[in-house]
Computed example of a mutant assay.
Amino acid sequence: MAGHYVIAGKKIPNHLLSIGFISAYALGGAYMALKPKPAQPATPPIQASSDDEEAFIKEFLAKAEADEKK
């Protein structure tokens, strides 16, 4: 017969402990895999050296998107 551990004054068989740990590990993994992810921005941030450059890039992207929709 398999061994046992005494926890809080009760004999707990080894197979129940192993089932409990494997279940907890699987549930933790499922939680981490299914947890909602934070929303990612649609485009990367614009890293312009000046405000004029940033405005030009935004205007260019807006025109490109408008041409693409046509």
Rank of each mutant, 00 (worst) to 15 (best):
A2Y: 05
A2C: 05
G3V: 03
G3C: 06
H4N: 06
H4K: 07
Y5N: 07
Y5R: 03
V6T: 11
V6D: 03
I7W: 00
I7Y: 02
A8V: 10
G9P: 00
K10T: 04
K10N: 01
K11V: 03
K11D: 01
K11Y: 01
P13Y: 01
P13T: 04
P13D: 06
P13L: 01
P13G: 05
N14H: 06
H15Y: 11
L16D: 08
L17W: 02
L17E: 05
L17K: 03
I19F: 03
I19T: 11
G20Q: 09
F21V: 15
F21T: 13
I22D: 13
I22K: 12
I22F: 11
S23H: 05
A24G: 10
A24T: 10
A24R: 08
A26C: 12
A26V: 13
L27P: 05
L27I: 15
L27T: 14
G28V: 08
G28D: 07
G28I: 09
G28Q: 07
G28W: 04
G29T: 13
G29W: 08
G29F: 11
G29A: 14
Y31R: 12
A33L: 11
A33H: 07
L34E: 14
L34T: 14
K35N: 10
P36E: 11
P36S: 13
P36I: 12
K37Q: 15
K37N: 13
P38V: 08
P38C: 06
A39C: 07
A39N: 12
A39I: 12
Q40A: 15
Q40Y: 07
Q40E: 14
Q40S: 13
Q40H: 10
P41S: 10
P41T: 05
P41H: 07
P41N: 08
A42I: 06
A42P: 01
T43G: 05
T43D: 13
P44I: 05
P45M: 01
P45Q: 09
P45K: 08
I46W: 03
I46M: 06
Q47H: 10
Q47L: 14
A48G: 13
A48Y: 05
A48S: 12
S49P: 03
S49N: 13
S49Q: 13
S50P: 06
D52F: 04
D52P: 00
D52A: 06
E53T: 02
E54D: 02
E54N: 02
A55M: 00
F56V: 03
F56N: 01
I57D: 00
I57G: 00
I57N: 00
K58P: 00
K58R: 04
K58S: 00
F60V: 09
F60T: 11
F60G: 03
L61W: 00
K63F: 05
K63Y: 07
K63C: 09
A64N: 08
A64I: 08
E65L: 12
E65V: 05
D67Q: 13
E68H: 11
E68V: 12
K69A: 15
K70S: 11
